[in-house]
């Protein structure tokens, strides 16, 4: 446990000591600022709609494809190449602590990044349009959970190679896949369902079953049905936490497999 925090603290401070991180931060802040302004203009000053759009709109999901990939590339693949991962993995901390520490650092960084939305909210409050604070904070909490999920996916993809660029690419593809699950599944189902069944009634039943399975993995849907609306739903929190733990578990196993692969 202590090891986790020691690693997380170093990784987080290490992130902020590297110019790479600051460049990412600046780019995201700049683009988000532009988007926020345009939303404010489009909605004619609607505080709730503007905040919701800038915190949970398409731009957020686009960042979710790129940022976790870049972070996990830095935290896993680059360290694996420079040898510092060997240092960490021979230090008296468990693999789980290393994985968890790196995960916490990357998620913490993204949490900090998304708290820029809270700054927007404070500014709106100051300017005379008080946002619905509990709902805004709930949504912010949700964005952190989503970030965690995508960081854990990115880290798992990153452990499979020590070539940073390849790792970033793999992470990006994995995160994209996770977002695109419902669209992909719909296409696949359109082909598969007629093959597996004969009657229209069976098709409908099968399509519905598969649809519910796919919907249960759709992060966008889970997010939009709870945090995005300003609702804390225990089932949705558990959804994100369990998938994060699952991917972190696989990441730890993947790192352990390195000890066998060499």
């Amino acid at each position: 446990m202590i090891g986790t925090f020691v690693v997380a603290r170093r990784e987080l401070s290490g992130l902020f000591m590297a110019p790479f991180t600051w460049i990412v931060l600046l780019v995201v802040l700049f683009i988000n600022g532009l988007l926020f302004s345009s939303f404010l203009y489009q909605t004619q000053g609607n505080v709730t709609a503007t905040l919701s759009e800038s915190m949970t709109g398409p731009s957020f999901w686009l960042w979710m494809i790129f940022l976790p990939a870049l972070l996990s590339m830095r935290l896993v693949a680059e360290e694996s190449r420079s040898g510092t991962l060997e240092y960490l993995l021979t230090a008296p901390v468990s693999d789980a602590a290393v994985v968890l520490g790196k995960f916490l650092a990357a998620t913490g960084f993204l949490a900090l990044l998304w708290s820029s939305s809270l700054i927007y909210a404070v500014t709106l409050d100051y300017a005379g349009g008080p946002p619905d604070w509990p709902a805004v904070i709930g949504t912010w909490f949700g964005t952190i959970l989503v970030s965690g999920l995508f960081v854990s996916i990115g880290m798992l993809a990153s452990t499979s190679t020590s070539t940073p660029l390849l790792a970033a690419f793999l992470s990006m593809v994995s995160c994209l896949m996770w977002i695109a699950i419902p669209f992909l599944a719909a296409n696949i189902m359109a082909y598969l369902v007629p093959l597996l069944t004969s009657t229209a009634a069976e098709q409908a039943v099968l399509a519905e079953r598969m649809g519910s399975v796919v919907a249960s993995m759709d992060a966008l849907r889970h997010f939009s049905r709870s945090f995005q609306m300003g609702v804390l739903d225990t089932a949705e929190i558990v959804f994100f936490l369990t998938w994060i733990s699952f991917f972190l578990f696989l990441t730890a196993r993947s790192i352990e497999a390195r000890r066998w692969r060499g």
């Binding site: 802040l29 988000n32 600022g33 532009l34 926020f36 302004s37 404010l40 203009y41 820029s116 500014t123």
Partner: peptide
């Protein structure tokens, strides 16, 4: 001017 202030913060001051 309140909207202008908010936009300035988001677009310039924060970055």
């Amino acid at each position: 001017e309140s909207a202008v202030f908010v936009i300035r913060v988001a677009q310039y001051y924060l970055p």
